[in-house]
Design a protein around this nucleic acid. Structure first.
Lengths: 201, 201
DNA sequence: GTCTATATTTGGATAGAC
DNA sequence: GTCTATCCAAATATAGAC
């Protein structure tokens, strides 16, 4: 039995409603109703709706997705295991209920909120490109993969992951099965690795 | 000097406002104001807001993007020109002002509107996967590229295009430069072609 | 901290004069 | 076909009693 405070409950309910209905669609009324209190009571915990949203939005980019520099190096020296590891993490986030809500909220508000766009570019894009390109660079140095621009290679690799994730999120939203998409992650690694690796006969 | 009827003007203004503010954000009030008439006058042309939106949404998937079966075959037999042609069309849509508005609207409402999601999957995804996989299949038959699953290859190719398009749209929304992203299309073709083609020494 | 009551704004939509 | 006037619903937010 959880004794979650009202404030925590508001945040939890808001997260779900924002990610389903967007900022405009999730009214304070609906939030209060789902929490089980009156609208006015909400304002004892948050100054206004915007403040609730900002609190929720904070979580979007606080995902535990990370690879330390040493870890990148160690894995990249072995080639494919680096990609496997990266995709495994990405896939776990994609299918994690909590993270999925965050991703959905991000996609809904991406074009309505400049701050989210900037964070999307820095946290979702730049950060991942950095990790991946570091890995590819090491692979190139060790003749595991063909030499080319590591940044481009990272971009190519990441874009497909994002697309799969978007599709999974869309399917889940309509309660459609995602079996085939789940294996798409592995197929991606397979395809990509085969197309960049150097044959060592 | 255009003598566009009020009805046309409403549609034009609505397209812009919907693609900037989303369905909820673009109020009938704002639309009427920008058209230069009163709200009530709107209802002489459209039954309600929903009807305006549906009229706008119709255009989203009416893009002139197409490749005839014979055209696909002819280009695919030459390999890379097929990819060049496809990406050129995709790039033109990406940078076309009108199409960009439509894409923005699609992304804003994608998670709010089931019908749009379905159309996105069939018109944006399935349709393009079909064209691309047909092309790749022909290339494989003619030993221009490595043999593998043409559907997977199409998926890999398309996902990057989508990602670039999304980024371009985000940047334009904030009036940021897209020079580097514009060349990303060509880099993608280059990278992808180099990784799938069979060396004919 | 929650309630009732209420203020205020915004948005969708209609009636009827011109 | 457009205007003014008006209605109604929904949403954000505050005041003050308990």
């Amino acid at each position: 039995m959880k004794t979650s405070s009202t404030k925590e409950k508001i945040l939890k309910v808001s997260t779900i409603l924002f990610s389903e209905l967007g900022y405009k669609g999730a009214s304070v009324r609906k939030i209060a109703s789902k929490v089980g209190i009156r609208e006015s009571a909400i304002y004892n915990h948050y100054k206004n709706k915007e403040e609730i949203f900002l609190e929720v939005a904070k979580e979007i980019f606080s995902s535990p997705f990370s690879l330390k520099t040493e870890e990148i190096k160690a894995l990249a020296l072995r080639g494919k295991p680096f990609l496997n590891k990266f995709v495994l993490q990405y896939k776990m986030l994609t299918f994690d209920k909590n993270n999925e809500n965050m991703f959905r909220l991000l996609m809904i508000e991406l074009l309505q909120n400049k701050s989210l766009r900037e964070q999307f570019m820095s946290q979702f894009h730049d950060k991942n490109i950095k990790i991946l390109s570091e890995g590819f660079f090491i692979m190139m140095q060790n003749s595991l993969v063909y030499s080319s621009d590591p940044i481009i290679m990272a971009y190519e690799f990441l874009s497909t992951l994002f697309y799969i994730r978007l599709q999974v999120t869309l399917m889940h939203f309509d309660a459609l099965p995602t079996n085939s998409l789940a294996t798409q992650f592995e197929k991606h690694v397979e395809f990509f690795w085969e197309s960049i690796r150097i044959d060592t006969i």
